[in-house]
């Protein structure tokens, strides 16, 4: 970690006293933490702890019943999915959510949809403005394809790709939006050691080269402790601990409730 010159800035996103429930089921119970510009922030906890729901709250897919979200100094009760995407929050999904019928290239191109400005008539005519725009964005997407080392599967329909590559394409689609905050939901689940190493490298490079703030959910404790600047621990929707990897590792509640049980 020391080889990187980290540029961690001010708080960019703060979640205060978030509670979320579906009917009688309480998914998040009074959770509060913040995220600083440029850091890698992890959320850990056993299955069903509410980690993915937390990401869904951050990008506005779920609307919490209580609490507030402060994003770039603006305090609000809940995020809106579309506005979240437009203001620079992108994410990947626990169960891959790629567009199965489209090629790798087209999938990543969809990540740039918010940046493409041609109207439907220009696109219907295509030649001229729409073509120019298409090619500009293609260049950007090709940079991402190079970065993720997936040049040879550019035109393959993603449904045919092996799991590890699908995870990469999904990361590529999120990167194509040039996000300020990147939410990664178990990017290494089901991968072997080499694939995990590749993915870790990509995550660090994204954070370092593009200065992207990353919120990470991951079960592999080794990876989490290596990559993260700060870690928040959830269990049954409640917040158990929040702090640096070392602090969390030595926290007795965490050891009892989580690390102690599953290891």
């Amino acid at each position: 970690m020391d080889m990187y010159e980290r540029k961690i800035g001010d708080v960019i996103l703060a979640l205060d006293n978030i509670s979320l429930s579906f009917g009688a089921m309480k998914v998040l119970d009074d959770v509060s933490f913040d995220v600083r510009q440029g850091e890698i922030r992890s959320i850990i906890g056993p299955n069903g702890a509410g980690k993915s729901s937390m990401l869904n709250v951050i990008n506005g897919f779920y609307h919490p019943q209580q609490g507030s979200i402060t994003f770039r100094g603006e305090k609000r009760k809940e995020m809106d999915v579309h506005k979240a995407a437009a203001s620079g929050i992108a994410r990947t999904f626990q169960n891959i959510a790629l567009f199965k019928g489209m090629s790798t290239l087209d999938n990543i191109m969809t990540g740039r949809n918010l940046k493409m400005k041609c109207n439907i008539f220009q696109q219907a005519w295509y030649w001229g403005k729409a073509q120019k725009e298409e090619i500009e964005h293609r260049q950007k997407v090709e940079e991402i394809i190079d970065f993720l080392e997936i040049q040879n599967i550019r035109k393959t329909p993603v449904g045919r790709l092996p799991y590890g590559f699908q995870k990469r394409v999904e990361l590529g689609r999120a990167l194509a939006a040039e996000p300020e905050i990147l939410l990664l939901d178990e990017p290494m689940a089901g991968m072997n050691v080499e694939e995990k190493e590749d993915m870790s490298r990509f995550i660090l490079d994204i954070n370092d080269e593009f200065g992207t703030t990353i919120i990470l959910i991951e079960h592999d404790m080794g990876v989490v402790m290596d990559l993260s600047d700060r870690v928040v621990v959830l269990d049954y929707g409640r917040q158990l601990a929040d702090g640096s990897p070392d602090e969390v590792r030595s926290n007795q509640t965490v050891i009892d409730a989580y690390l102690g049980v599953s290891h």
Binding site: A85, F99, G101, N113, L114, R173
Partner: peptide, 14 residues
């Protein structure tokens, strides 16, 4: 096609 293949993901990417 994004809406066709997975509408929720399409919505989340904007």
């Amino acid at each position: 096609m994004a809406v066709r293949d997975m509408d929720i993901a399409a919505e989340i990417i904007g």
